[in-house]
Simulated assay, not measured.
Amino acid sequence: MIDTIAGIRVPDSAIARAATQLVRDTEDDLLFNHSRRVFFWGALTGERRGLAYDAELLYLAAMFHDMGLTGAYSSADLRFEVDGANTARDFMKSYSVFERDIEDVWTAIALHTTPGVPEHMRPTIALTTAGVEMDVLGIAYHDFTQEQRDHVCAHHPREANFKEAIIEHFAQGIIKKPETTFGNVKADVLALKEPEHFVRGNFCSIILGSAWPI
């Protein structure tokens, strides 16, 4: 596997290599390539902004961020983001990583679908979300050069139907626990994919229907 893409070098530590292997063995090609691209977009964003980020922590957050969508690491009742964060935390603990670093990676993964918050946090957290938003939503697309986009995608291709396919992956990862989409963007996924069965939670209805008398 190429070690340097678009001027960004992939961390080559024992924990980074083990993470790559675990994710490669667990995720399909679409999610694996997406996770790798998230690292490069996040790192390139960090370089462009002049941020002092830890490439290894960013790599771990990027690689594990969608593990909660897989059958092997999906819980019955937690948000998939939390499943991925918990998987990363357990993995990092097995390598005796500092608790503060584990917390940053956990938070980066747990918040990567919560817009408006991660960008104000430490670099690992902010750049993980930036990478996800670039790859899935195209946010800041034009802040990257054509050469950077082409180089990353040449080594980790977007499938011809990536937009539809990533939505389908989201749906399949959360369809058995629709209640976990309350208050987050994944409710839009089930509203699109399961319009006849999915009932979106309503914040105001919960307030008005609570046990409080007034």
Rank of each mutant, 00 (worst) to 15 (best):
L78M: 04
P118Q: 08
G7Y: 08
R158Q: 12
E103K: 08
M121Y: 14
S210G: 13
A62L: 01
M1A: 12
I167V: 14
L208V: 00
L111V: 04
M1V: 11
D29L: 11
E56N: 07
L60M: 07
D54Q: 05
A43Q: 04
R100V: 14
A43E: 00
P213A: 07
A130E: 10
T114D: 04
T107W: 10
A171K: 01
R17G: 00
D54H: 15
D77Q: 07
Y95I: 10
G173W: 01
D143P: 02
V152R: 01
L58W: 00
L111H: 08
I139T: 00
V10M: 13
F40H: 08
F39V: 00
I174V: 12
T87A: 15
I5N: 00
V97N: 00
E81T: 07
D66H: 06
G201T: 12
R17C: 04
M92L: 08
H169W: 06
M63R: 08
D150P: 01
P115T: 05
W41N: 02
I214W: 13
A165Y: 12
T113I: 10
S74L: 06
A171L: 01
T70Y: 06
L127A: 06
A130Q: 03
A14Y: 10
I167K: 09
D104P: 00
H142T: 10
I8C: 05
A187W: 09
A14R: 13
H151A: 15
E99K: 13
A55K: 09
L78W: 06
M92D: 03
R9H: 15
D77Y: 14
A88N: 07
R100H: 10
R149F: 02
I139Y: 04
A76C: 11
C153H: 14
E81Q: 01
C153P: 01
E164I: 11
I15Y: 09
G201E: 15
R122S: 15
P118Y: 13
L58E: 00
H34Q: 04
E133I: 09
M92C: 02
A6V: 03
K163E: 06
E196W: 10
D25Q: 13
L192A: 14
N161R: 11
D66T: 03
E119Q: 10
T114L: 08
H197F: 07
A187C: 09
A211N: 10
P213I: 05
M121A: 12
F182G: 09
G42M: 02
Q148R: 02
H169L: 02
T124N: 03
D29P: 00
I125G: 03
R158N: 09
Y73I: 02
A14L: 09
